[in-house]
Each structure stands twice: as structure tokens, then as C-alpha cells.
Design a protein around this nucleic acid. Structure first.
Length: 97
DNA sequence: CAGTTGACCCGCG
DNA sequence: TCGCGGGCCAACT
């Protein structure tokens, strides 16, 4: 199937189960033509008030990326049971394969 | 030490 | 104008 990488990124995001997180790199690997930077850019350009679980995407070091909605992201994750440790990292067992 | 990654930014086609 | 490849670079594995 041939779809734009943006579309694939959105699809992959929608597949992430609640209470799980994944990284830019993994999203990029699953969406042909995407790179971690492009994934990040795509997320930034998402309109506010969309229904995608963008908050389930974190950096390769399992921390939240530095962006204006980071605080909100942390709350969304906490609400799903993904609590960050003292270093701000999400537990490995919460990673979506 | 060496490789990866990034919620950027600019510049090219 | 728009989309995105790619450069720079700091931070982390």
C-alpha cells in the first residue's frame, strides 16, 4: 500500500494501545519515508483539539521531548498509568514494541 | 569514544 | 507557496 508518510505516522499513532508509549524513531521506522525529525515536525503541526494520541510519543531516551505541550503530555500519560521516574523517564515495560 | 536523535530552522526544488 | 531533506549541535545511550 502506498500512502504518504504523514498518513502512515497518523495510522501508527492510532495503533498505540492506551498506557503505552513509543519513540519517534519507531514511528519513523514503521512509516516509510519518515525520519524522526519529520515525525516530530508532523506532530507539531497537528491542529489543537485533534483526537490523535500524540502524547504517547516520546524521545529515544524515553523522556518527553522539549515542546510547549510537554506538561500536558505528562498529565495525559499519568492519567493512563504511565508515570515518569525521578529522571523523567518512562518505564521500559511501557514501551510499545 | 562513537553512534543516534531531535515538537528546529533554513533553503532548495 | 509548500513540503521536506539535511545541517548544526547538544544531549544521551
Amino acid at each position: 500500500m502506498k500512502a504518504g508518510w504523514r498518513e502512515q505516522v497518523l495510522t501508527v499513532i492510532a495503533e498505540i494501545p492506551p498506557g503505552r508509549v513509543t519513540t519517534y524513531g519507531r514511528i519513523a521506522a514503521m512509516a516509510e519515508g519518515a525520519t524522526p525529525r519529520l515525525v516530530a515536525r508532523a506532530l507539531r503541526e497537528l491542529p489543537t483539539g485533534h483526537d490523535q494520541p500524540w502524547f504517547r510519543i516520546i524521545t529515544a531516551s524515553r523522556k518527553l521531548a522539549d515542546h510547549p505541550g510537554a506538561a500536558e503530555q505528562r498529565q495525559h500519560l499519568a492519567a493512563e498509568g504511565v508515570l515518569l521516574d525521578a529522571r523523567g523517564r518512562a518505564p521500559v515495560e511501557r514501551m510499545w514494541p
